[in-house]
Nucleic acid binder design. Structure first.
Lengths: 347, 347
DNA sequence: TTGAAAGCGTTACCAC
DNA sequence: GTGGTAACGCTTTCAA
């Protein structure tokens, strides 16, 4: 039974016009309460639901938001990306929008956006992982496709809508915390610095050092995909060097776990011999909570960012004339078990 | 410029009928090569692309595959799920299908499927994370919505299409490897055993023990969400007990990393004092490769599973009369650095 | 090989 | 408050 009834059949069963039935179902005010009741009841009974393609065609709105994921982004942002998507997805559902995700070869990214625009697949898109030399926003403006950036596009902050955490300030505060604890040899294990977020984090780190008259040691700064082995291997190398760091500032929990592994393998103790602060995106499968979290961290929920980004975008779409709007989230600095005073003597 | 031309305008510019233009563009054989050439050139020039809603309405196919993600699944399967999605997404793109993802409250899951069917939002769906008492497949059959299961539905193996790895056998082999190394006290840190995959893994473990006349010790068996702390906390507890295990068999890399952390914190060495075998889903951000991988593991690419599941489903859709088809993947057993002979004396 | 016209299932405009 | 009818932009049947 379930499958089938369309508007025409439904209206025939009711001896009403399609117009009236449509209006009743879509909550138009001019239809009498009595008919509305009759209509909704019959619709329920027959299991009527409007065909979304037909509705989209008639209204001219796709009622969908697109997310284009080039493989390369996916590789490195994998878990973070999903958490963001989950947040955004909930907002979309709540507002009756679909989320459509296109996984494409890097070379076909631009093509994917063009298709979304020309075939009218979505009413807007989210830009993920903006780079220092970002250009997607130009294309999207040209295509007249509303968008929100997760992160910020350097130089285009005013003219685009975005949601971002304060990466620079978060890493500045984290660095200051380590400095206050007496650490002076601090290693930075950053994400890929051609990405805007990582770039800002490095600046926060460097500025905090500079403010105390310290210059960063290039030997203690790394930038790469934030995998677990990346953390472990680099930490290992540094810890075994002649002049090892006493603290690590790390861009991702996953790499931080790797660093902790290296610390253990060197026979050292995290929080006593070596301090660690990591950024924590609050991923559900890597909980770092509890009374005293394992890792001292700068924390900002990427899932929440997803929810908000979606809201921003849906607003833009229903309000096409509105000015760009943005949300700047502050990361929390949370003290966990992985930080402590710098060891007295260089060991 | 970019935005705009539709079929009508395009055909007018060409002094052809919409019919012919449509046929030319869709590769119908009866149109002359000359006109086809004219048409495609003009289409390129004007940047024509068919409106997907209109085409969907006309053809009656949504050209989209749905993935319904209840929050609870998402929480626990997070990274694995995304990797699967990435694989599936590539296949969809290649075949001109969209991927639409619905993130919904657990209570609204059934509703989401009903909507997909009644509103014709997708031509098929993928069932993620089947449970021991799975019921979604019944609903989907009733709704007449083609589907493929990632995993297996106990008791419905014959009547459904699925792709799964051989969980039972993988864990049996892993257990045998540990037994061969002389381990007899082997701990199992499993995923949630109300899920089919975890259930099968436990059986593989138990059967391997039984085959050597050993009975599993309930004190060494855990089942929960596969987070990092889950691995660490449980391993810690067991290692500190009176009769600690000498080896761990773990359902996820993430938890395995937690176990390794616990081993380190107890002053023990992985691979010498304590052996670890983990299942490895080959997640990009948790590489466990290299000449000698860090962890000895059973490995099966969940991304590949995604690609194949998508192919299976697209086949079903274009071939509605076909019988259920399935793919049973064997996990590789790969020797890494985390296993070694059982320590001579109980320490 | 090409074209006219009838759908596909809605929404929305304009009368009544 | 309700209904007739024309879009929406494409595919597809039937003729020519």
């Amino acid at each position: 039974m379930s499958n089938g009834v369309n508007l025409k059949e439904l209206s025939q069963r009711l001896n009403l016009s399609q117009t009236t039935v449509s209006r009743a179902l879509n909550g138009y005010p001019e239809v009498s309460e009595e008919t509305r009741k009759r209509v909704t009841e019959m619709a329920d009974k027959l299991g009527y639901a409007p065909n979304s393609q037909a509705r989209r065609l008639a209204t001219g709105r796709a009622m969908a938001i697109g997310h284009v994921i080039p493989r390369s982004i996916h590789e490195m942002m994998n878990p973070i990306f999903l958490e963001f998507i989950a947040g955004a997805g909930e907002t979309y559902s709540r507002h009756g929008y679909d989320m459509i995700i296109s996984v494409v070869d890097d070379a076909k990214e631009e093509d994917a956006y063009r298709q979304i625009a020309s075939r009218k697949k979505a009413d807007g898109v989210i830009i993920h992982g903006p780079a220092n030399d970002e250009r997607r926003h130009r294309l999207l403006k040209e295509l007249n496709l509303p968008f929100v950036v997760h992160g910020r596009i350097p130089g285009a902050e005013e003219e685009t809508s975005w949601i971002d955490m304060n990466n620079r300030r978060a890493f500045e505060r984290a660095t200051n915390l380590l400095l206050d604890l007496g650490h002076t040899r601090i290693a930075l294990l950053n994400g890929l610095e051609h990405m805007d977020f990582a770039n800002r984090r490095r600046r926060g780190f460097e500025e905090a050092l500079a403010a105390r008259g310290l210059t960063p040691d290039p030997a203690l700064m790394r930038s790469a995909d934030m995998t677990e082995p990346y953390g472990c291997d680099n930490a290992m190398e540094m810890l075994k060097s002649d002049n090892p760091p006493t603290a690590f500032l790390i861009s991702s929990m996953i790499s931080a776990i790797g660093v902790a592994r290296a610390v253990g393998q060197c026979g050292l103790k995290t929080g006593r011999d070596v301090s660690i602060i990591t950024h924590d995106d609050a991923l559900s499968f890597l909980p770092n909570s509890g009374e005293v979290p394992i890792f001292t961290c700068t924390r900002s929920s990427v899932r929440y960012a997803g929810e908000k980004a979606a809201e921003l975008l849906l607003n833009m779409i229903s309000n096409p004339a509105s000015k760009p709007a943005s949300l700047h989230l502050d990361a929390e600095l949370i003290i966990g078990q992985s930080t402590g005073p710098a060891p007295a003597a260089p060991k």
